[in-house]
């Protein structure tokens, strides 16, 4: 089984992001981490590999610093990693990113002499939260896609993916190759061990550029992206309501009931 996991490095999502003086997200002091949903995808891929054999390659489009998260990926399940770095890709929207990823898929397949059977993406990133890249990548590659997957099983030359729905779940059969976008499964990603960290440190992470990928310069970067962000703002704070904390439970409760009845919420 040849598996590719797409990973984006994002600011640690347990830290609240605000705007800085120039109206940009103040993220330079927030620790960079692999996008949480991508770590769920990698863990699912690692378990799938343990059950069915194969190789896991992680790929990230972004600056050289993204190697930080790729190193971590190498310590928790990925066998190989590539970073795709090119200044011309800066500011690409989801469609342009999906295009670059599709070219990266082809290039890595050529370099490794393999064909990927499954491409895992997180269901969304915790920074821009568009949830678009996975399905758009599938369309670029002309393969099937299942979104919001929380479990999967091999079924001959197909995959049975458990997809979350509004009321519960679907089991969806999809032919390989396929793109899957992953939501949080019922388990957590594994932690690296001393040994796996050491092994990861020794691995090389090759860099691919636009010249390697042969991407069309008119389809990438901020200027050639369909979606243009014109400004950022912080949401208006919800007006603080009242907090009731009287000496006894009875007093607190009576006061709370009075406020809520007054507001006619029941």
């Amino acid at each position: 089984m040849e598996i590719l996991v797409c990973v984006k490095q994002v600011p640690d999502d347990s830290v609240k992001v605000v705007l800085n003086g120039s109206g940009q997200p103040a993220i330079d002091k927030i620790a960079p981490v692999a996008n949480a949903f991508d770590t769920y995808a990698l863990e699912m891929a690692a378990r799938f590999k343990e059950a069915n054999g194969g190789t896991i390659t992680a790929v990230s489009i972004g600056p050289d610093e993204f190697k930080t998260s790729l190193k971590n990926c190498l310590a928790v399940g990925a066998d190989k990693a590539y970073v795709v770095t090119d200044a011309s890709y800066d500011g690409s929207d989801s469609l342009a990113t999906a295009y670059v990823l599709s070219k990266a898929v082809a290039k890595i397949e050529e370099l490794e002499g393999v064909k990927f059977d499954i491409i895992f993406c997180g269901k969304e990133t915790t920074d821009s939260t568009t949830a678009l890249v996975g399905p758009e990548l599938a369309e670029k590659l002309g393969v099937g896609v299942v979104t919001c997957v929380t479990e999967l099983a091999l079924n001959g030359d197909k995959i049975d993916a458990k997809q979350e729905t509004e009321e519960g779940y679907n089991t969806i059969e999809v032919a390989m190759p396929a793109v899957l976008t992953i939501n949080k499964p019922h388990y957590d990603p594994r932690y690296p061990t001393m040994k796996s960290k050491m092994a990861a440190r020794r691995k090389q992470i090759p860099t691919l550029t636009s010249a390697d990928l042969g991407t069309d310069a008119s389809l990438v970067g901020a200027a050639n992206s369909a979606v243009k962000t014109i400004s950022l703002s912080e949401p208006t704070k919800k007006q603080a309501g009242i907090k009731i904390n009287e000496k006894t439970f009875e007093e607190t409760f009576a006061k709370a009931m009075a406020v809520m009845t007054e507001a006619k919420i029941f």
């Binding site: 609240k16 992001v17 605000v18 705007l19 939260t129 369909a226 979606v227």
Partner: peptide
């Protein structure tokens, strides 16, 4: 049309326009 979308768990809002037609 200017579309406002949440990012960073809704802590920041982005105003966007789309260059393609349809959008």
């Amino acid at each position: 049309i200017v579309f406002t979308c949440p990012m960073y768990s809704g802590n920041i809002l982005s105003d966007n326009v789309i260059d393609t037609v349809p959008q």
